[in-house]
């Protein structure tokens, strides 16, 4: 069966098309989310289907997930990103027991059961601290690009983590440290350390168990990966494309729910599905 998973996140939108019989990802896409979710969802599905050499109509079952999951009118089911990330990560890393996902505007920790299902989870989306947005703010304040920040921090290694709970306080702490003459590499390493620590404090309530997998766009920063390793005291696993685990999980779950339907029911679903073609400028 050909399935699709669409993950509309606050910053990035991702799609995966899967052939469940071959257990192969046929194509995937990552684009920036903007304000218009509905047209974006169709656009990314069409784009990904094209890459796979298919048309949208050939997709048997579609699952929508992410922050904007309610804005995918043609999705056959909408499932939370927690369940989808768990599914996607478990597929890539069967030995995973704890997932830490750092998104653009939220962060989550998910505990997996031995069967690979969600055992428990915890989320933070109340404030910027511990999310990609915080790093964005620091980058703008210091007028240093995200990749430069990452490079600089990696040079420093170990440093006293920034302690503040609040993103605004943390920024002020960073600025104070710089004005005291602390080298910028040390300050940034401390920032990543504080960042990891804040997320781990949240995750600790789940009783972190190995293997730990990091996902989400923000974890592409090597400095953040290093900070997590330091704070945890052991290595972490990172998918090749950390942004796609949600969409992958959604596509896999599409296979599960689509698989429960008969061929007639699937055909009827495909016929009923309405894609309104809209031009995206």
């Amino acid at each position: 069966m050909i399935t699709a998973g669409i993950d509309i996140g606050s910053t990035m939108t991702k799609a995966v098309i899967l052939d469940t019989d071959q257990n192969a990802v046929l194509a995937s896409s990552i684009v920036e989310t903007g304000a218009e979710h509905r047209t974006l969802a169709l656009f990314i599905l069409e784009d990904t289907a094209k890459k796979a050499g298919l048309s949208c109509g050939q997709v048997a079952f579609i699952v929508g997930t992410g922050y904007g999951r309610l804005n995918i009118p043609f999705a056959d089911k909408q499932i939370t990103e927690i369940t989808c990330h768990a599914k996607g990560v478990c597929h890539l890393f069967p030995q995973a027991r704890t997932i830490i996902e750092v998104g653009g505007q939220d962060s989550k920790a998910i505990k997996l059961t031995e069967e690979g299902t969600v055992g428990d989870f915890v989320m933070n989306n109340k404030c910027a601290a511990g999310t990609g947005r915080f790093l964005q703010c620091v980058s703008e304040t210091l007028e240093v690009s995200l990749s430069e920040m990452n490079e600089l921090a990696l040079r420093a290694g170990d440093a006293m983590p920034v302690s503040s709970l609040c993103a605004i306080f943390a920024q002020q702490e960073i600025i104070s440290a710089l004005s005291r003459g602390t080298p910028v590499e040390v300050v940034l390493a401390g920032m990543y350390g504080g960042f990891a620590r804040k997320i781990l404090t949240m995750a600790n309530s789940l009783r972190i168990e190995r293997e730990v997998v990091l996902t989400g766009g923000t974890c592409k920063h090597a400095a953040l990966q290093a900070a997590f390793r330091r704070e945890l005291g052991f290595d972490v696993l990172i998918p090749e494309e950390p942004l796609l685990t949600g969409a992958l999980g959604a596509a896999l779950l599409a296979g599960k729910y689509g698989g429960r339907l008969s061929r007639e029911e699937l055909e009827a679903l495909q016929l009923r599905r309405s894609f309104t073609s809209v031009e995206i400028s």
């Binding site: 922050y67 499932i79 939370t80 990103e81 927690i82 369940t83 299902t117 969600v118 055992g119 989870f121 989320m123 989306n125 109340k126």
Partner: peptide, 16 residues
């Protein structure tokens, strides 16, 4: 919205 995601994920967990 934030609560809905958490509640829905929990209900999905119960449904597994």
């Amino acid at each position: 919205e934030q609560l809905k995601t958490r509640i829905q994920a929990f209900l999905e967990m119960l449904d597994q």
